[in-house]
């Protein structure tokens, strides 16, 4: 793994993103600093949690999926080919484990209820509905408007924007790739999702933002 260090961003440089910090943490871990992952776990767990939840995994199972994703990182620390892409690796690993959890959960439920499976679609295409925000949770009228506007977007746009909002913006390429957006159209896809959201917000007419 010597040499990979040079390909990493300058630690002292400005504008380190979560993806950069993840790469540095993995490299330091490989070099024997076993405390190096602590900060990354604290920082990236919310992103993994919401990635898993977006696949329709119930909260209890989602906790275990996130936990097992971190365990998988440690187990594969030496074999991850591109430390620079470790954030994407984490997101893809979490997402696949989430799909598996959804599939198993459905199988279990099916066995238990013995009902015919009348939804032949692939489970991946059927994430559960987003939890509805409690009015108590979103007291601010602007927050409610923003959340309702988000719900009007296509599902993939919602997922992309929610996850991008939790990372540093330059990391959108990892997040987009991890959730299956074609690499060539990432910039425009991100733009379309944000543009649609802003259009919907603008259509709220005379709503006061101040």
């Amino acid at each position: 793994m010597t040499g990979s260090r040079e390909a990493l961003p300058d630690v002292d440089g400005p504008g380190l993103t979560l993806g950069d910090r993840a790469a540095i943490a993995l490299t330091e871990y490989r070099e024997g600093n076993h405390q190096a992952l602590g900060g990354l776990v604290r920082e990236a767990t919310p992103l993994l949690w919401h990635t898993v939840r977006a696949q329709g995994v119930e909260p209890d199972a989602a906790e275990d999926v996130v936990q097992s994703t971190w365990v998988a990182l440690v187990r594969h620390a030496e074999s991850i080919a591109e430390p620079k892409a470790v954030l994407k690796w984490l997101l893809v690993t979490a997402k696949r484990a989430a799909w598996e959890a959804v599939r198993k959960h459905r199988d279990d439920e099916k066995r238990r209820t013995e009902l015919p499976d009348d939804s032949p679609e692939h489970p991946m295409a059927l994430p559960s509905k987003d939890p509805l925000p409690d009015a108590e949770v979103l007291r601010d009228e602007r927050d409610r408007l923003l959340w309702m506007s988000l719900q009007k977007l296509p599902g993939r746009c919602q997922e992309l924007l929610r996850l991008v909002s939790l990372a540093d913006r330059p990391d959108y390429r990892y997040i987009s790739a991890a959730i299956g957006m074609p690499m060539g159209s990432i910039g425009s896809t991100r733009g379309r999702c944000l543009a649609k959201l802003r259009t919907i917000l603008d259509e709220q007419g005379d709503f006061s933002w101040t």
């Binding site: 919310p46 919401h50 925000p133 979103l138 923003l146 929610r162 909002s165």
Partner: peptide, 9 residues
Amino acid sequence: LAHLVEAVD
């Protein structure tokens, strides 16, 4: 949006 995501779930 990040704040909302955290507040809702």
